[in-house]
Design a protein around this nucleic acid. Structure first.
Length: 149
DNA sequence: AACGTACACTTAT
DNA sequence: ATAAGTGTACGTT
């Protein structure tokens, strides 16, 4: 099946998604939108609904590699909570530094919620503006508090 | 194929 | 505050 691209709004940014059916191949953030739609789940997530995007399928978690193991561990982190690089490392049999690398190269943010992984002593980093990581976390926190919205 | 360097970190001085 | 330790990837020999 052919991969289609689309975007949807998230706060000040646009989320670009390349996907087909229930499989998401690539996600990235941008200041500008592109034509086309995104999976309904992602649309609703961006609108503030409390839902776990890890139910979406992505090739990145199917490989038999260290990164895939890490990504699967990251997907276990529930909406609105956070984990640390160290914890993910322990859970996937590697080292924190590697987790950082995996996050930095994450092809599908949101689907693999790398924004929920923070440093032991602070928020840690983010490839796109750190602002986005903070916005996502505070949105999730807010969503939990309110129940749904 | 080996080698050096770079990392979105951590833990121990 | 600083440094040593960590596992993997990537570019350069």
């Amino acid at each position: 099946m052919e991969i289609i691209g689309g975007s949807c709004r998230f706060g000040l940014w646009f989320v670009h998604v390349w996907w087909n059916d229930k499989t998401v191949h690539r996600v990235r953030f941008s200041r500008t939108g592109i034509p086309g739609g995104v999976p309904e789940l992602i649309q609703r997530y961006c609108a503030g609904h409390v839902l776990n995007l890890s139910q979406l399928d992505t090739p990145a978690i199917r490989e038999d590699t260290v990164y895939s193991r890490i990504y699967r561990a990251v997907q276990q982190v529930p909406y609105g909570s956070t984990s640390t690089y160290g914890e993910i490392a322990a859970g996937s049999g590697t080292s924190p530094r590697v987790v950082g690398q995996a996050m930095a190269r994450n092809p599908v943010p949101l689907v693999i919620p790398c924004h929920r992984i923070v440093a032991a002593g602070g928020i840690g980093g983010f490839s796109s503006p750190l602002e986005i990581k903070e916005a996502l976390l505070s949105m999730e926190k807010k969503g939990l508090r309110k129940g749904v919205k």
